[in-house]
Structures are given as structure tokens and as C-alpha cells.
């Protein structure tokens, strides 16, 4: 279980998170929605320790995420798909996927790591021929798939997806959404997805949390989202220009 309590984070005068409280139960898929710049990515980076909160407490199964006993062991529990893929340009695809398995505490023999990488690539629908290409040789959709394969390569307990469908055409976005849902279900992983794509929300989420004004504005099961009375949530999920959320024209 991931517990986030009263987390604050400011960058200079910009107070991005102003007391976020959220609980993500083990094995559930929670999608965090919210407009651009509302701090969704900052929130998951706080959980991973990539950004240090100014205040608040984050625990993962009771362990303090900000001061884990072993940072390596703590991070080994996570997989993450970055918004832009964040694939390493200098490494071929299979070494990107097997990165964790080629070094550090999860190191395996090179051949075994390659076999696992090929298996994960197949799981996300990529042929073995892709394994020896470099990231720059792949389309945006293929890069997302490779990023997804890397995120699940070491079978993590917790997976974060940061804007998994941004920049993809609707069909490819649908494919990625379906893959994420399948993988999370079959691995039994706890997942947090950051998105403002409502088709992703409906495809991936068990629960939805809306981040606005630096706090969780609404949180509940995806099935309850449409019937919720929160005007901010309703404006966001229906993409209305009119409503309490200020828009710039």
C-alpha cells in the first residue's frame, strides 16, 4: 500500500503540491488526473525520491519512501514508464529493456538477460528484430512499448505510468492502454498512472484521483466518476471550457 500524507512541494514561488493525501491499495490501478502543470508528475517523482517534498510523509508498505533502509532495494520494487520513454540512446533496445538485469543487485548472465528482454518485448507486441535496433530508429509508439517492456522487465510490484499515451495516435493509444491494463492485471502489480487522457482513465483505472490546486480534489472508484457531483471533476472529464477551472483562451 502506498500512503501519501500532507505532501507539499514548491519550486520557488510556485506551490505545486499543497497538502496531497492519497492512499493506493496493493494490487489496484489508480489513475491521477488533472490539468497540465498541476503537479501529477511531481507527485510520483516524490514517491520515487526523484523530487524531495518540502513537507509530508510517504510510505510504501509502511516503509518511509523518503528515507528507505536500502535505496537500491526500495527502487527495485518499482518500474516506471516515462512520458517521453526516456530510453537510453546509446544502448540497443534489448539492453534498454534488460538494463536492470545487466547490472546491480538484480544482475543476471548476459544471455539470460537478453532472453528476458526478448520475452518482455514480445509481451508488448514487438518482434525480436527490434531488439538490436537503437531507440532513435523506432517510432513514438514503439518507443512507448519498449519503455513499457523496460518498466516490467524485472517484474516490479509497483509500476508508474507517466502520460503513457501522450503523442500517440488514438489507435496506438488504445493499444498501449489495453497493454497496461492486461499487464497490471496479470502481474498483480500496484499501478499509478498519470494522465489527462480520459480514454486512458476508463481503460486503466480501478480508482481515480483528481489533482487540482495542489490537493486531491476528488478520489473514488472509476465507476463513480461520471456520477460525481464535484464541478471541477465534471468540467475536466467532459473537457468543458466553462466551469470553475480557469482556462486561458
Amino acid at each position: 500500500m502506498i500512503t501519501i500524507e500532507d505532501v507539499h512541494k514548491a519550486f520557488g514561488a510556485n506551490r505545486v503540491l499543497q497538502g496531497v493525501d492519497l492512499t493506493v491499495a496493493r494490487g489496484t490501478s489508480t489513475v491521477v488526473i488533472g490539468g497540465s502543470g498541476t503537479g501529477k508528475s511531481v507527485l510520483i517523482k516524490c514517491i520515487l525520491g526523484l523530487v524531495t517534498p518540502d513537507r509530508g510523509r510517504i510510505t510504501v508498505d509502511g516503509e518511509d519512501a523518503l528515507r528507505p533502509k536500502s535505496r537500491d532495494a526500495f527502487l527495485a520494487r518499482f518500474g516506471m514508464l516515462f512520458q517521453g520513454g526516456a530510453l537510453f540512446d546509446s544502448l540497443p533496445v534489448w539492453q534498454n529493456v534488460a538494463f536492470r538485469l545487466l547490472r546491480g543487485r538484480l544482475k543476471r548472465p548476459r544471455e539470460e538477460a537478453r532472453a528476458i528482454a526478448l520475452d518482455r518485448l514480445a509481451r508488448v507486441g514487438l518482434k525480436p528484430g527490434v531488439a538490436d535496433l537503437y531507440p532513435a530508429e523506432l517510432s513514438g509508439g514503439m518507443q512507448k512499448r519498449v519503455g513499457l517492456a523496460r518498466a516490467i522487465a524485472a517484474s516490479p510490484e509497483i509500476i508508474f505510468f507517466d502520460e503513457p499515451t501522450t503523442g500517440l495516435d488514438p489507435i496506438m493509444a488504445g493499444v498501449i492502454n489495453a497493454l497496461i491494463r492486461e499487464i497490471v492485471t496479470e502481474m498483480g502489480a500496484t499501478a499509478i498512472t498519470i494522465t489527462h487522457d480520459m480514454s486512458s482513465v476508463r481503460a486503466i483505472a480501478d480508482r481515480v484521483a483528481m489533482l487540482h490546486g495542489g490537493v486531491i480534489r476528488w478520489e473514488g472508484p472509476v465507476a463513480a466518476m461520471d456520477a460525481a457531483e464535484d464541478p471541477y471533476l465534471q468540467q475536466f472529464i467532459h473537457g468543458r471550457a466553462e466551469g470553475p477551472i480557469e482556462t486561458v483562451r
Binding site: 517523482k45 520515487l48 525520491g49 526523484l50 535505496r71 537500491d72 527502487l75 527495485a76 518499482f78 518500474g79 516506471m80 516515462f82 512520458q83 517521453g84 526516456a86 530510453l87 537510453f88 540512446d89 538494463f99 536492470r100 547490472r103 546491480g104 543487485r105 538484480l106 523496460r150
Partner: peptide
């Protein structure tokens, strides 16, 4: 610098490196 702005350095951290 390119690795930093394309989040590759963050990705390294999440991969326990």
C-alpha cells in the same frame, strides 16, 4: 544535458542505478 532533459537520468535512478 540531453539525458537530463529527456528524463534519462531520472530513469537511471528508477532502475536502481
Amino acid at each position: 544535458g540531453t539525458m537530463k532533459v529527456t528524463e534519462q537520468i531520472d530513469a537511471l535512478t528508477t532502475l536502481s542505478t
